[in-house]
Amino acid sequence: MRRAEIHHPIHAAIDDIWNAGHTPRIQVDARRDDVVVPEFVKTKWGARLVLDLDASWPLNLTTSAAGIEVDLAFQGQVTRCTLPWASIYVVLDRATGRGIVIESHLPKDDTLQTHPERPAMREGIESSEGPSEPKAEAPAPTPAPAATADEKAESSDEEAKRRRARFKVIDGGR
């Protein structure tokens, strides 16, 4: 089987996740002028638009040196979207949570720091200074020290909050 031409390291990361039989999840700064998505999506999700590129959905995905064009559904409406490579700053495997962050593509303001649950999204994600060398795996997190019964109850509440926050990521990161 001949592999399609790879246009960008982000494209390669997405392709590798698909080849593993999984669904790539990307995070996009939809506020950019060159991003084409419905206006209500730009308004609601801004710099934190999270999209699953599920191969079982008829994405009609095309790639070029400029970026991705893909059919996506928002509130039941299918829209042809344009996502330049520079607008995509996270690519991860939805099944494993492993992926890459392209530091040079991160939004230049504090948008991503407005929600305390956001650091959980970065667990298992490698950072890349630029799009030329994405890394596919991250080291395992260091285990926390043993906790007392009161701390366990409190940490259980915190863990539940983190899990709920992860479900919100599926709906766009809020």
Rank of each mutant, 00 (worst) to 15 (best):
M1E: 10
R2V: 08
R3S: 11
E5V: 14
E5P: 01
H7D: 12
H8N: 15
I10H: 10
H11D: 15
A12G: 07
A12Y: 05
D15K: 09
A20S: 14
H22L: 00
T23L: 08
R25C: 03
I26T: 12
V28A: 05
R31T: 15
R32Y: 03
R32C: 01
V35M: 00
V35E: 11
P38T: 14
P38I: 12
F40P: 03
T43I: 13
K44N: 13
K44R: 15
D52E: 15
L53Y: 11
D54R: 05
D54A: 14
W57R: 13
P58E: 14
L59N: 13
L59V: 14
T62P: 04
T63P: 03
T63C: 04
S64L: 06
S64T: 13
A65T: 15
A66L: 09
G67L: 09
G67M: 06
G67F: 07
I68L: 14
E69S: 15
D71L: 12
D71P: 06
Q77C: 04
Q77F: 02
V78E: 15
P84F: 03
A86H: 09
Y89E: 13
V90E: 04
V91D: 04
L92E: 02
A95M: 07
A95D: 09
T96H: 11
G97I: 05
R98Y: 01
G99S: 08
G99N: 02
I100T: 15
V101F: 01
V101K: 02
I102A: 04
E103L: 11
E103Q: 10
H105Y: 12
P107M: 04
D109S: 10
D110Q: 10
Q113H: 04
H115A: 13
E117L: 03
A120D: 12
R122P: 03
E123I: 11
G124M: 08
G124N: 03
I125A: 08
E126A: 15
S128T: 08
S128F: 06
E129K: 04
G130L: 00
E133M: 03
K135P: 06
A138F: 10
A138V: 05
T142H: 05
P143F: 01
P143S: 01
A144H: 04
P145A: 07
A147F: 02
T148S: 14
A149C: 01
E151D: 10
K152S: 07
K152M: 11
E158K: 10
E159T: 13
R162M: 06
R162A: 05
R162T: 12
R163G: 06
R166S: 15
G172N: 01
G172A: 07
G172P: 02
G173P: 00
G173L: 05
R174E: 14
